[in-house]
Amino acid sequence: MSAAGVESAPSRQRRPARPRRSPWAYVSVIAFLALTWWAGSDRFGIGFSVPELIENATRAGGIVSDFLDPQWIYWTALIGPFIETFQMAVIGGVIGCSIALVVAFLASKVTTPNTAAYLADKALLNILRALPDILYALVFVAAVGIGPLAGIIALILFNIGVVAKLLSETVDGVDLGPSEAAQAAGGNRFQQIRAAVFPQVLPNYLAFSLYTFELNLRASTVLGIVGAGGIGTLINVERAAFRYDRIAVIIVAIFVIVFVVESISIALRRRLV
C-alpha cells in the first residue's frame, strides 16, 4: 500500500462490499427517459427537435428583426390600458383578499373544528386552485361580456384561492394558548378567532395580500388576451396586425412594471412579518 502513501493498519477489520444500488434508482431513470422520449417524440408527443428550431428561427428572420427594433414611440398608447390593468389588480385584490380571510378560517382545523365543514372548504379551494385564472376569465367573458369586469371576477376567484390556502396553513400553525385563554374567559368561537387567532396571523395576511397584488398585476397583463380587459387587449390587436415592433414595446413595458412593483412589494413585505 505504499503506493497510496498510506500504511494499512494490520487489523482484522473487513472491508465492506460496495452496496448495491436500489433497483428503484434504475426504474426511476428508465421511467424518466421513457417519459421524456414519449413526450418529445414527433409521433406521440410534441415533436421536439433542435435542428428544426434553428431552421425556423432563421426563416423567421424578418419577424425577429421586427422584435429587435421596437417602435418605442408606441409607449404612449399603453398608458390607458395599463391604468386599467392596475384598476383590475386593485379591485380584484381588495375584494378577493377580504373574502379569502373568511374562507381561510373556515379551511383550518384550528378555527373550524367541524371536520365536514373544514374538509368541504379545503376540497373547494383545491378545485378553485386547479384551474388557471385565465380559464376563469374565458368563461366570464362569455358570461358578462368583453371588458374588465370579467377580468376582475376572475382575479377575485384567483385571489381567494391563493390567499385562503396560504393563510389557512398559517392558521394551522398558530399558538393555541391564547385561544384557550379566550375560551377560558368566556369568549365564543367568533371572539376567540378575532381576539386570539387573528392578531397572530395579521402580518402574514398583509404579506400574502401584497404578494397577491403582485401576482394580479402579472395575471391581469394576460387576461386581456381573452378579452377580459387591461394591457393584454392591445397584445391581441397588434398581433392580428403583425406589428411585432409594437408587441416588443408592450413586452418590455410589462416587464418593467412587474419588475418595479415586485421590488416594492418585496421591500414592504420584508418589513411586515
Binding site: R129, K165, L166, N204, A207, Y211, E214, R269, R270, V273
Partner: peptide, 21 residues
C-alpha cells in the same frame, strides 16, 4: 410559494427573506 398559478415568488410566509433579492 405554493400558489400553483404559474409564478413562483419569494415566500410571503417568511416575509423578511434576506435571500429574495
Amino acid at each position: 410559494v405554493t400558489d400553483g398559478h404559474g409564478q413562483s415568488g419569494p415566500d410571503p410566509a417568511k416575509g423578511p427573506n434576506p435571500r429574495d433579492f
